[in-house]
Design a protein around this nucleic acid. Sequence first.
DNA 1: CCTTGACCTGTAGCGCGCTCCAGGTTCCAC
DNA 2: GTGGAACCTGGAGCGCGCTACAGGTCAAGG
Lengths: 122, 122
Amino acid sequence: MATYTPAETVARSGFTIETLRYYERVGLLYDIARDPGGRRVFTDRDLAWLEILRCLRDTGMPIAQMQRYADLTVNDGSVAERLEILRQHDEAVTEQMAQLRRWRRHLRDKIAYYEGVQDQGP
Amino acid sequence: MATYTPAETVARSGFTIETLRYYERVGLLYDIARDPGGRRVFTDRDLAWLEILRCLRDTGMPIAQMQRYADLTVNDGSVAERLEILRQHDEAVTEQMAQLRRWRRHLRDKIAYYEGVQDQGP
DNA sequence: CCTTGACCTGTAGCGCGCTCCAGGTTCCAC
DNA sequence: GTGGAACCTGGAGCGCGCTACAGGTCAAGG
């Protein structure tokens, strides 16, 4: 199984090393291996998990809920509850997108208004 | 012209009174009238402006940029620059929506995977 | 060897966007 | 005219999600 140094993991995950350490501390990363010198050794499994974290984070899931999800995953918790979390989040993301669409319409109306003002000159 | 008490403004704008006071303090609200007792009196113009602020805020514009926009608006600043800000923000919102769409696809793949796992039973 | 730089742990601090006092006024209903 | 709610100002505090030390270890190149 391929392994990755912290620097490689930073490059591949897009998280900073500080964020990775922070995530490990707060329980979003678990069982991260160490080499004999004490340095972190990341695996493909870890990178896959980091991608999930990035997905959840970048779609606005709070850390507390990510912790819940992480806990269910590491402790072989209920698949049903994991599904529940993901489905609810999917709904939240959909709602977020709808909201953004509505506001963008607003924004574009405003832009059109200013374009009209501009055309009429000062 | 219709006027509104702080409580009415809270109800109509969706901001808390604390947020309204904060926005006034940092320069996002300007020339808010006072009644003889010193209380704020909001007008339709203020409510319209609050809706713009809500649009910008809820689509992720940082306060510093809202301040720039507010400054241009209150001081009759360049319409071209206001347009520039709004257009850039429109692009940012569009990018944000595209990102969300991509992540949602991811999320749904994950959900489908768990549904498969669940069907196979324990 | 010695330097250099990536990495470690533990802990403190920060920036953003509010949010919450403290201590006081004003208004309205009774 | 009294009680209570709504409001005021000024300033401190908070929650989130990192981010930045301090002080040290380890590994590789010259």
